[in-house]
């Protein structure tokens, strides 16, 4: 299929991009790697009147070590994120997740910012950002601001970004000493997750001292499994973890689609949380 016709501008600075978007009105959209937007346009499911190509804005590219946290520019590709040495401790989750998105072609063109801005509840990075209590940074006509990941994703393909705002990057706490894992369950290697579980765990000699669980494709937005997190804290054995993961049923009923019923999704989430926690804890005795 061929997209409906649209105008195209390539911005040479962030300010220019913002003013082009402002002039283009509500049907103008920024274009980064194009791996979410262009397929929708080719199916004519998205019909922007203007694409503002921000792909040349080097200021939005790269991974910066800020000490306790890491800042990742919006135009950093998934491939670059996957290999970023600064992502240590719990923040290593982001690298693991990025390394499993799509296929190598997608990872070399698709960007972190594009994936975040697209706010697809089935894409992997949002759940990881949620589990890490990351912040999303935005630039708009009124200046820049930060929004907690928990407040950024507000519905399927809907975010807290206003019209005319561009996602410029994310800031991720390192959470040194924490382990991480992403359990992605899919039919084909390059598919979206049917269910994904992003876990960071602080494993100590006395067991789990803290855990955060982000869920992919279990609702209209990425979700935190807070009841499970609470129940996990203080556990150290497999049986206790299995008991804790059953608390995921306290979430709202997950969606049903051609790949999974709600019931099966809920079951998968429990299996995958247990596996992710065991992997993130790095404790062989907890893995089956």
């Amino acid at each position: 299929m061929i997209p409906a016709s649209f105008d195209y501008e390539r911005a040479s600075s962030l300010d220019e991009a913002l003013s082009l978007l402002a002039a283009g009105g509500e049907d103008a959209r920024p274009l980064a790697g194009g791996h979410s937007l262009l397929p929708l346009m080719r199916l004519r499911l998205a019909r922007p009147s203007l694409l503002v190509d921000i792909g040349g804005l080097d200021e939005l590219r790269g991974v910066h070590d800020d000490g306790d946290s890491v800042t990742i520019g919006a135009l950093t590709t998934h491939h670059e994120v996957a290999g970023a040495a600064a992502l240590t401790g719990g923040s290593g989750l982001i690298a693991k997740v990025a390394g499993g998105i799509g296929d190598p072609q997608v990872r070399h063109r698709g960007t972190l910012g594009g994936s975040v801005a697209h706010a697809d509840p089935a894409s992997d990075l949002p759940a990881a950002l949620l589990a890490l209590d990351a912040e999303v940074t935005l630039a708009g006509p009124g200046g820049t601001r930060s929004v907690a990941a928990a407040d950024f994703f507000i519905g399927p393909f809907m975010s807290a970004a206003d019209d005319g705002e561009i996602v410029t990057g994310v800031r991720v706490p390192k959470q040194e000493g924490w382990g991480s894992a992403y359990q992605k369950f899919q039919r084909r290697a390059q598919d979206w997750a049917i269910v994904g579980v992003a876990a960071v765990v602080n494993w100590t000699d006395s067991g789990i001292a803290g855990a955060a669980i982000g869920l992919t494709n279990m609702g209209g937005t990425p979700l935190r499994a807070r009841a499970v997190e609470a129940a996990l804290t203080g556990t150290s054995e497999k049986a206790q973890i299995l008991e804790a993961v059953s608390k995921v049923s306290e979430l709202e009923t997950p969606p049903a689609d051609e790949n999974a019923s709600s019931e099966y999704r809920l079951h998968l989430a429990q299996v995958l949380i247990a596996r992710a926690v065991a992997e993130a804890a790095g404790c062989p005795g907890m893995q089956r």
Partner: peptide
């Protein structure tokens, strides 16, 4: 319902 390769699951060599 299976109107594209997104939900008509043609496998790849990876499978």
């Amino acid at each position: 319902e299976t109107s594209s390769m997104v939900n008509y699951l043609v496998p790849s060599a990876a499978e």
